[in-house]
Design a protein around this nucleic acid. Structure first.
Length: 488
RNA sequence: CGGGGCAUGGCGCAGUCCGGUUAGCGCACCUGCUUUGGGAGCAGGGGGCCCCAGGUUCGAAUCCUGGUGCCCCGACCA
């Protein structure tokens, strides 16, 4: 075996890194904490982008682009916002290099110091709201529904490929509204878009909820979230949608004249998902053989392998199959590499998570069949070439559904109630997953629980139910359960 | 920011403690032959500023001093 992957059981963290590297998704770069996304990894991200972008546009949004640099003074205009991000900002201080007078290479030219430092955006609320001031005068200018696809930089102390990198790719939507109600509706709408994307396309079931004060976005009034559960029982925040109230409008003095000729501050939302979704995808579906990609996000859905090698007879049969598959909008690749043997190719495409593999050899052609292998269950069967496109089309749908159902079953098995701290800790240590528990609603209690157990409140479900109970830590009264978990 | 580890061909490593001929192994690569239904075998071949700078020495991948970078664990983190 040329490409061993550490098993999940042995070391989940190493398994994840092995998948990322051996499936050619990404690699570490020469820059600390920054990754190179390789062509295959990027092709999956592009599929995600394409679908999300479509969904944003279907809900009335437009794309725009704002600068990568933010004047330092902007960042500090919203007090909570700067508190949240100040410790992880990359700062541009100079604009020119010069030859090193003492030797080789170049040094920063001290005479080229910027009057005001520029921050490499960790998120764009400030520069965007500074711009919105120019765009908004009247209620007739609202709403503004804008999204941008870009990179951002957060100087994290510790990074992990896709899950937390110093630079990452994402989209950030920034909307402006004339009423609070409309902004809240937008916030929830985008949470719903994210949840639908995660479940229908990524086949990743998510909890829809909102954050406790402690976990809220810096500068937000309310943060809505979708939370996914990974195979090791840890939660991953997969997307967030923030209701920002009038905080940024006030900080950047963005007012509009309403229908009654009264001046008001604008209401805001922002929402984002990032390349972290790649991490969620990997850790939800993949196995010890490699990556597993749901058909709707696979850049290649079907691979055809001639056994043992391409020849005229096989090529003719494959060409016919490919035409039929393409006619149904299925992406297919025919691997005609003569140097590699079938066994090698099987392993390789399993590593890359291609959902369906067709194998065609002499034996098959004599019987008018192909060997069909599905990546999710590793099952193989012989199917007639006649009507194969219809069979594959259905199979891709089955795989998509199966992946979602499998992940949902895992989550159901790993969702528990806990009524005491002992119970809570016991579940956390042995089983992991989402733990529904009563909480007294205070930041102090949440922090204390985190200190004791490393678990945090992932969210309060949107559809929380009234239930009398006692806080697992303090015993104070509580009227609902909230969701705890250890998180990435 | 604390703790640990690593730096030697494209990748993964050995060699370093105890300095000594041409720096070695596996994978990958190139050529040829035989193979080919689950990661082929044999034969031949190419490829190294041994992280950087300085020092010790007849001689440094190896010893000394000072740097740099990366990875992992923890703290931290929408």
């Amino acid at each position: 075996m040329a490409k061993e992957i550490t098993s999940r059981e042995e070391d989940y963290s190493q398994w994840y890194l092995d998948i990322v590297k051996k499936a050619n998704l990404a690699q570490n770069s020469a820059v600390r904490g920054c990754m190179v996304i390789k062509p295959y990894g990027f092709s999956i991200w592009e599929k995600m982008q394409g679908q999300l972008d479509k969904m944003f546009k279907e809900t009335g949004h437009q794309n725009a682009y704002f600068p990568i640099f933010i004047p330092k003074s902007f960042l500090s205009k919203e007090a909570q916002h700067v508190d949240g991000f100040a410790k992880e900002c990359a700062v541009v201080t100079h604009h020119r290099l010069m030859n090193d007078p003492n030797g080789e290479g170049v040094v920063v030219d001290p005479s080229a110091k910027l009057e005001e430092e520029l921050i490499v955006r960790p998120t764009s609320e400030t520069i965007i709201w500074n711009t919105y001031r120019d765009w908004i005068n009247s209620y007739r200018d609202l709403p503004i529904l804008v999204n941008q696809w870009c990179n951002v930089v957060r100087w994290e102390m510790r990074t992990r490929l896709f899950l937390r990198t110093a630079e990452f790719l994402w989209q950030e939507g920034h909307t402006a509204h004339s009423t609070q109600e409309e902004a809240i509706t937008e916030t929830k709408l985008m949470q719903d878009v994210y949840a639908r994307f995660a479940e229908e396309y990524m086949a990743v079931p998510v909890l829809r909820g909102f954050k406790s004060e402690n976990e809220r976005f810096a500068g937000a009034v309310d943060t809505f979230t979708i939370e996914a559960l990974m195979q090791d029982g840890k939660a991953l925040q997969a997307g967030t949608s923030h209701f920002l109230g009038q905080n940024f409008a006030k900080a950047f003095d963005v007012k509009f004249l309403n229908e009654n000729q009264k001046e008001e501050y604008v209401w805001a939302t922002s929402w984002g998902v990032s390349t972290r979704l790649m991490g969620a995808l990997i850790m939800t579906h993949s196995d010890d053989e490699g990556l597993v990609v749901p058909p709707k996000l696979a850049s290649t859905q079907v691979v055809i392998i001639p056994i043992p090698k391409p020849n005229d007879e096989i090529n003719a049969a494959v060409e016919k199959i490919m035409t039929e598959l393409k006619a149904k909008g299925i992406t297919v690749k025919y691997d005609q590499d003569k140097k590699k043997r079938p066994g090698f190719k099987f392993a390789e495409y399993e590593m890359h998570g291609i959902p369906v593999r067709l194998g065609i050899g002499k034996r098959d052609l004599e019987k008018g069949v192909v060997e069909v292998a599905r990546r999710d269950t590793k099952e193989k069967s012989s199917q007639p070439i006649e009507g194969i496109a219809g069979y594959v089309e259905q199979l891709l749908e089955d795989i998509q559904n199966n992946l979602f159902q499998r992940a949902l079953d895992y989550r159901t098995e790993h969702s528990s109630n806990a009524d005491t701290m002992e119970e809570f800790q016991e579940i956390l240590e042995n089983k992991g997953g989402f733990i529904y528990a009563h909480w007294d609603g205070t930041v102090e209690t949440e922090k204390k629980i985190k200190e004791l157990t490393k678990a945090t409140i992932r969210c309060i479900p949107n559809d929380w139910k009234e239930e009398e109970g006692k806080c697992i830590l303090t015993g104070k009264p509580s009227n609902r359960r909230v969701v705890f978990a250890k998180a990435y």
